[in-house]
Design a protein around this nucleic acid. Structure first.
Lengths: 158, 158
DNA sequence: GGGGCGCTACTCGGATACTGTATGTCCGAGTCGCAGCGG
DNA sequence: CCGCTGCGACTCGGACATACAGTATCCGAGTAGCGCCCC
């Protein structure tokens, strides 16, 4: 079970976007994070589709957070980029083979699927408890208060 | 983030194995669950490598649970089949670009990686709380006590 | 009749093709800002 | 001097190649059981 690395890029981009009020083009975000611009654009489009960021075309266009940083959870970003399909897809193999379970016993999910779904819920809850604002604060603390200030300055310049 | 469907097969196989004391060949497990035998064998090998089941060659060989069903957790099965790499691999992009974080601030993990790791820990804990015996009991309850009895009977026959 | 030996059949295990998803890239459609022109 | 219009440049958005991992399969190495032969 591997998570697309686009998730990491998207989270960093959201944190950066939370530091400026102007729209930031995809190319500029790519430069800031040192990642391929064309590919990052793809993930930003996914964020836009997911309602995490809003895009504006034109000469001074770019991406902006759709809501306040404290109102956007990490889970939303992950879901927007990675898709909202469940990680475990039950193929109902209990209905296969010589001992196939009768259909009337399959009204509930398979016990295995329930366990996996519970685990996924725990994972999602953990991600939903953290907001972009929390991330920005944590990163700022790690850098003793310089990282976010530098990002703000860099976004302002040019 | 998608989980290999081999995980589902492996869990079902472990539950079935918990019902019989004889070694069960891969082909027989495949027949029981209605899945391709050659492919299932691959996953059973992974379970053997992970120490979840033990394999015995020869005419009456096959697979057996390596420990008591209550002592094997779902997490072990998932890890054995899917690999134990973390779902989120931090590429340290904070060290990229014009505002690269200095190395002395990177002694700890990136804040984003920490959040993802916490979520994964929650997921793993949830899976580690359930054993194969728990699964077998839950499946039995769903079928009003017939499913595991049928499996035992089918494994005895032939 | 008992013990030893060889054969056979069955098992797992890893090496080998194929498919789908993630990765990476590109060019076209659309929009906003700015400069130039006319009133 | 002010407003309108046309142009240009920049933006996003989706369509297009490529690389890798999951899917599916096969055949060879090894072992245990069984029957046969010899004593």
């Amino acid at each position: 079970m591997k998570l697309s690395n686009g998730v990491e890029w998207a989270l960093h981009c959201c944190v950066s976007l939370s530091q400026g009020h102007e729209a930031v083009p995809a190319a500029r975000l790519a430069e800031l994070h040192g990642v391929p611009a064309a590919y990052l654009a793809k993930h930003l489009q996914a964020l836009a589709r997911g309602g995490v960021v809003t895009s504006s075309p034109g000469q001074v266009g770019g991406y902006t957070l759709a809501r306040a940083p404290g109102e956007i959870t990490v889970l939303e970003v992950v879901t927007a980029v990675d898709g909202d399909e469940p990680t475990f897809r039950c193929r109902e193999i209990r209905q296969n083979g010589p001992l196939a379970a009768p259909l009337e016993q399959c009204s509930r999910w398979c016990a295995i699927a329930r366990v996996m779904a519970d685990a996924e819920t725990a994972w999602r809850s953990s991600l939903a408890a953290i907001s972009i604002a929390d991330l920005a604060e944590a990163i700022d603390d790690d850098s003793h208060g310089t990282a976010m200030r530098d990002v703000r300055g860099w976004l302002m310049s040019r």
